[in-house]
Amino acid sequence: MTTALAIRKKLSDEVRLKLEEMIREEVYPVGTALPSERDLMEMFGVGRPSIREALYALERMGLVKINTGERAKVTRPTPDHFLSSLAGVARQLLVRPEGVANFEQARLFLEEGCARHLAVHVTAEQIKAIEAALARNEAAIGKARAFAVTDVAFHRTLTEMVSNPIFVAVHDAFVDWLIGQRPLPARPEISNRESFEGHVAIVDAIRVRDPERAGRAMRDHLESAERKYRQSGP
């Protein structure tokens, strides 16, 4: 890194930190626009490149939204912003020998916990929604791509019902990072039926409000799926 570039980087970091503090303290509340680039240049005594680098960094953090020709607008960060910033790191970890296994374990802990939680707190309306997701999954048996879509949707339905947006964002990230790497089964009818039966066991346990059984059913299902895809891999 050249000296000039290093200095500019340091200046942009200082601007970013100051603007981040001002946003956090609601000097610029959510929904309002930041000053123009020219005004920010005068405010911080730096050039346009440093201001733009600071704004782009804030956008990656989910703190502002930048549209061409408009002033940057303050936004509220979401779990998706945080996880999207980790996507590159996640893909680097996945190429390591133990990478996939580590992510599979993390997914198992999340979904097993969600299943246990639902077995205690599920409502009658939620049970109907779970059963509807299960029915769509059953209808797709033998249609490899359709089954994969309804499989993911079934698991997402359970995760959504815990009412924690961080869990939903993490679930979606796992789908993006893990499921996309899995090949479609060579014999979808058999493979799909096995997965569906795992879903049935989970739903049955939630329906009778047995958290231990629900957690065990989810663990058995995910471990079985992980073994199956590992055996079918290269």
Rank of each mutant, 00 (worst) to 15 (best):
E59T: 03
E59P: 02
D39L: 12
A140H: 00
S36C: 05
L55A: 05
Q181W: 10
L58K: 02
A101M: 08
I7Y: 11
V46A: 06
D210E: 10
R216C: 08
E21F: 10
Y56G: 08
K128M: 11
F167T: 07
V208Q: 14
G233A: 15
A129C: 05
G45V: 04
P29C: 01
Q231L: 13
E112T: 10
V120N: 10
P234Y: 07
A57E: 15
I166R: 11
Q105W: 11
Q126E: 15
A135Q: 08
T32W: 08
V27F: 13
R219I: 07
S85K: 10
D176V: 06
L94C: 06
S163H: 15
E42V: 12
A140C: 02
L110P: 02
E226G: 07
E25F: 11
L34E: 00
V120P: 03
E59D: 09
A4V: 12
E125A: 11
F154W: 00
D39C: 07
L108E: 15
H199N: 09
E70I: 08
V46N: 02
A133G: 03
A57K: 08
R187I: 10
N164Q: 12
A148R: 14
L19H: 05
A57Y: 04
P49K: 11
T159R: 01
V15N: 04
V120F: 07
E226C: 06
D176H: 11
E197D: 14
F103V: 00
E53D: 15
R91S: 14
G88Y: 08
A148N: 11
A217K: 00
F196G: 06
E160F: 06
I190F: 09
L17W: 11
E125M: 09
L178T: 03
E14K: 08
G99I: 00
E223W: 06
R16G: 07
L11K: 15
H171W: 11
A139Y: 07
E223C: 07
G113N: 02
R8D: 13
R209L: 04
E226S: 13
A106K: 02
A146F: 05
I190S: 10
F174D: 02
F147R: 00
T32Q: 14
L110C: 04
M1W: 14
H81Y: 13
R76G: 09
S232D: 15
G45P: 04
L40C: 01
M218A: 07
V64L: 03
A205V: 03
I202E: 02
L17I: 10
R107D: 01
D220L: 07
L108K: 13
I51Q: 07
M61F: 10
A214C: 01
A201H: 01
L55E: 01
M41S: 07
V200I: 04
A135K: 14
Q126K: 03
M61W: 09
R193F: 03
A101W: 12
I206Q: 00
